[in-house]
Simulated scan of single mutants.
Amino acid sequence: MATFISHLTIDCSDAYSLSEWWKPVLGYEDVPDDPNLPGHDECMLVDPAGKGMTVLFIEVPEGKSVKNRLHLDLRPREDPQDTEIERLIAHGATVVADRRGQYGPGTGWVTLADPEGNEFCVLRSPAQLAEQSAPTEAADA
């Protein structure tokens, strides 16, 4: 019999602060009736719509020292990729690598890092993907 992923755990030095940083990034909230508070060494966030994966932040003694072996790929729900990247940088993310256009116009991603250095990628929005796959007027002629 198969298993399923219960939640994604992110090791960190300050579970509360990092969960608070990620909350507006994902549009997530604390577990109802179990709020995250300063000093908690484990803080969980859930998708209020109940559709996304639960994320758990756990304090560990060691700091991040190498590239993540696993990372999140984020897709903006509505805004274009560039707008979402600007929002996240204004929120405190840092750019690790810009791979936009790597596979041709309108392709690619940008790798960012949260305040503790955990990398994540920002992909193009569903609207941008649909726009790219839509036939152009020249192709219809």
Score class of each variant (00 low, 15 high):
residue 68 N to A: 10
residue 68 N to E: 12
residue 68 N to T: 04
residue 69 R to N: 13
residue 69 R to Y: 06
residue 69 R to S: 15
residue 70 L to A: 15
residue 70 L to T: 12
residue 70 L to P: 08
residue 71 H to Q: 11
residue 71 H to G: 08
residue 71 H to N: 12
residue 72 L to Y: 12
residue 72 L to Q: 11
residue 72 L to C: 14
residue 72 L to M: 14
residue 72 L to S: 12
residue 72 L to H: 14
residue 73 D to I: 03
residue 73 D to K: 03
residue 74 L to F: 10
residue 74 L to V: 03
residue 74 L to I: 07
residue 74 L to K: 02
residue 74 L to C: 05
residue 75 R to I: 13
residue 75 R to H: 09
residue 76 P to R: 03
residue 76 P to C: 06
residue 77 R to F: 05
residue 77 R to W: 01
residue 78 E to H: 06
residue 78 E to L: 04
residue 78 E to M: 03
residue 79 D to Q: 10
residue 79 D to S: 08
residue 80 P to I: 04
residue 80 P to Y: 11
residue 80 P to K: 10
residue 81 Q to N: 12
residue 81 Q to R: 13
residue 81 Q to E: 14
residue 81 Q to M: 12
residue 82 D to C: 02
residue 82 D to K: 07
residue 83 T to D: 09
residue 84 E to S: 11
residue 84 E to A: 13
residue 84 E to T: 13
residue 85 I to C: 10
residue 85 I to K: 06
residue 85 I to L: 12
residue 86 E to F: 03
residue 86 E to W: 03
residue 87 R to D: 04
residue 87 R to L: 08
residue 87 R to C: 04
residue 87 R to W: 08
residue 88 L to C: 03
residue 89 I to S: 01
residue 89 I to M: 09
residue 89 I to E: 10
residue 89 I to C: 07
residue 90 A to C: 06
residue 90 A to D: 15
residue 90 A to S: 12
residue 91 H to K: 02
residue 91 H to E: 01
residue 91 H to A: 08
residue 91 H to M: 02
residue 92 G to S: 09
residue 92 G to M: 08
residue 92 G to I: 12
residue 94 T to Y: 14
residue 94 T to L: 11
residue 95 V to F: 07
residue 95 V to D: 09
residue 95 V to K: 13
residue 95 V to C: 13
residue 95 V to M: 13
residue 95 V to T: 14
residue 96 V to E: 05
residue 96 V to H: 02
residue 96 V to Q: 07
residue 97 A to E: 09
residue 97 A to M: 06
residue 97 A to C: 01
residue 97 A to P: 00
residue 98 D to R: 02
residue 99 R to T: 11
residue 100 R to P: 04
residue 101 G to Y: 00
residue 101 G to N: 00
residue 101 G to R: 00
residue 102 Q to W: 02
residue 102 Q to D: 14
residue 103 Y to N: 07
residue 103 Y to G: 00
residue 103 Y to D: 09
residue 104 G to Y: 07
residue 104 G to F: 07
residue 105 P to E: 10
residue 105 P to G: 02
residue 107 T to K: 02
residue 107 T to P: 05
residue 108 G to N: 09
residue 108 G to I: 01
residue 108 G to F: 06
residue 108 G to L: 07
residue 108 G to K: 06
residue 108 G to Y: 06
residue 108 G to C: 11
residue 109 W to K: 08
residue 109 W to G: 04
residue 109 W to P: 03
residue 109 W to M: 11
residue 109 W to I: 11
residue 109 W to F: 11
residue 109 W to D: 13
residue 110 V to L: 06
residue 110 V to R: 07
residue 110 V to E: 05
residue 111 T to Q: 15
residue 111 T to I: 15
residue 111 T to A: 15
residue 111 T to D: 15
residue 111 T to P: 08
residue 111 T to W: 05
residue 111 T to M: 14
